[in-house]
Design a protein around this nucleic acid. Structure first.
Lengths: 356, 356
DNA sequence: TTGTACGCGTTATCAA
DNA sequence: TTGATAACGCGTACAA
């Protein structure tokens, strides 16, 4: 429903006001300070300030602040071909994993004067590619990418071309780019240890998509951990996406065979899908089947039952990725690094000893 | 822990590659097509295309795509003083209410070629103000604001100056700006009706902060609805923020007096805080106290107990706000409008008849 | 229908 | 230490 405003509100005073007075330009400042625009530019610019006599610097700065001068980043960008802007590519902002990461990125970059451009790709390579190009056209100084697939020619090529870039959470196969991620392998190992410690021996894995690193790494870690305990490592189904629906489908497939006593889900959304599947089959968690998630999404501990999960420091992931990119942009660091942040198993009500 | 890459990965091939070939410019296209840059510009520009001979248009466009030409938005912005960019101000991206809204905004604006700049203000007027200024400096064409307080001089002044702007979810007192929000008053009325229908008569309200419209509007709606049922409307506590912690504090205060049989929370986060408070006092929801939230955040129906809440179409809120802004930017609409999207009470397990 | 000429606001280079 | 000049890439009056 669209409501027109009541009469007393309609006043479109905006239209009748004088147009906003144009922002003062560098010329204005220079003129007012009695110097040449080039000098004003040097005085106002951190890096070139030392070239100007202190008294002049002082005068220019005073005039500038008196006039309320702010540089025009557009004009500056045109000249310098940098933009103090960073592009962030994520699969989907409504996946609860990403908001804390993006928030961390924005906080860290914002503190250094950078602005953030975000785009959602929905895991569609075409959208990834077009968004990437659009951001490059806007002269972004670098990228933080959370959408990488293991085989991702776009990322690889960009890296080869020297585009400043950091991957967060997910990575490509060719490690020619810096990465910040949670320590997935350790997380999965702790998870399996926990379940085995409870007495489980028939443990299945609902893996995430294997074309992204998190899916592949966690699957490999699951197999390794199971082997380490001398248990069968082949109880695996692969979900088509990191979504509740895909988790449900994969879990139903699993439950159609022999029902395991525990399920290690590739992430929390898949775990919720497992909840759904269990419920449909009339099974109770954790009485019939224990379930463990991954990521420890916000509020995941308040579900019914509270989900045991691996806490990944999402906000810090974003902050660290931003830091790596800033290092790269400032030219301090140039060789790619891999930063794995520690994770922690958070045991809650979705795991219990197997029955009888 | 920071891991250096194994030797086989270190190859900084990026540094050794030839520098990325410079993007072709409008001149390059013009030269290659044998026309003047001005003609190329006109041929490539939707609005001026009709001024140039169709055959020439064709030739220029072919050359452009052959060279992989893309306009330089920076240069264009400098010339046109528009940027095809919109600023979005939100309190906090990690509040689950906002990701769907932002996603809706990005989808709708992206479809029209606009790019989105977001900033988190944490409800701090100073941050709101500095982010607003920074975005204006970057020549954003307009704003979508989810941070408005009822008395918000910054917003008011910007509106008076004719800055294109749309408020989403929250609004200011002086309605000189377009607004897109959920129909809060109806939502609260339905909530109270529902509780009264279950037999509740002692109903309290944990209100959100009264300096933002949602807090004030929902409180007023609560009072009106209670009066409509001939019930006391003064069982109200006000939370300091829309957060779980503030909800807990406010609810504890409430429970220190006579315990009501039902609580209408100002939003879902406050409702979760009420869950906490109840638990601390050894009370059970819904057996001892029914609780209703507002917004129907993602996964809120999977809590323990599943929260009865008012579903607000968050994604659509974002889409509609973007549309209003696009209308304004295109000059089609200039008078502010208020769009209230319909909401819906979703009854779940947190509400039940009061005990015998 | 196309070309000419200029300027958007800034910074880099060169000269003084 | 400062000034003059040009250029970043584009769009647009104006002229032809």
């Amino acid at each position: 429903m669209t409501a027109r405003l009541p009469a007393r509100f309609t006043a479109p005073r905006a239209a009748t006001l004088p147009p906003v007075s144009p922002r003062p330009t560098l010329r204005d400042v220079a003129t007012a300070a009695g110097v040449h625009p080039a000098t004003a530019s040097r005085a106002l610019n951190e890096a070139t300030r030392s070239l100007v006599r202190p008294a002049t610097v002082e005068r220019v700065r005073e005039v500038a602040s008196a006039l309320g001068y702010q540089v025009n980043p557009i004009a500056r960008s045109l000249k310098t071909s940098r933009s103090e802007t960073v592009g962030v590519l994520i699969p989907d902002l409504t996946n609860p994993l990403f908001p804390p990461i993006v928030r961390g990125i924005e906080d860290a970059l914002g503190a250094s004067g950078y602005t953030v451009l975000t785009a959602n790709t929905d895991n569609d390579p075409a959208r990834e590619s077009s968004n990437f190009a659009a951001m490059q056209a806007r002269q972004v100084d670098g990228f933080i990418v959370a959408t990488a697939r293991l085989d991702d020619p776009l990322m690889h090529e960009a890296a080869l071309r020297g585009v400043p870039m950091v991957m967060v959470n997910r990575q490509t196969e060719q490690l020619d780019v810096s990465v910040v991620a949670g320590d997935d392998a350790t997380g999965i190992a702790r998870t399996v240890d926990h379940l085995v410690g409870l007495g489980h021996r028939d443990i299945a894995h609902v893996a995430g998509p294997l074309d992204v690193s998190t899916g592949a790494v966690r699957l490999r870690a699951f197999r390794t951990a199971m082997q380490g305990h001398g248990l069968p490592d082949d109880r695996v189904v692969v979900a088509e996406a990191y979504s509740e629906a895909a988790g449900r489908t994969a879990s139903l497939e699993l439950l159609d065979g022999a029902v395991p006593t525990a399920v290690v889900a590739g992430n929390d959304l898949l775990a919720i899908g497992s909840y759904d599947a269990l419920e449909e089959r009339g099974l109770i968690c954790p009485d019939d089947v224990s379930i463990v998630g991954f990521n420890d999404m916000p509020f995941i501990g308040r579900l019914r039952p509270p989900l045991t999960s691996v806490r990944v420091p999402q906000y810090e992931l974003g902050v660290e990725a931003a830091r790596l990119l800033l290092d790269r942009l400032s030219g301090r660091t140039v060789t790619p690094r891999v930063v794995l942040l520690p994770v922690q198993l958070v045991v809650r009500g979705s795991t219990a000893p197997p029955r009888g």
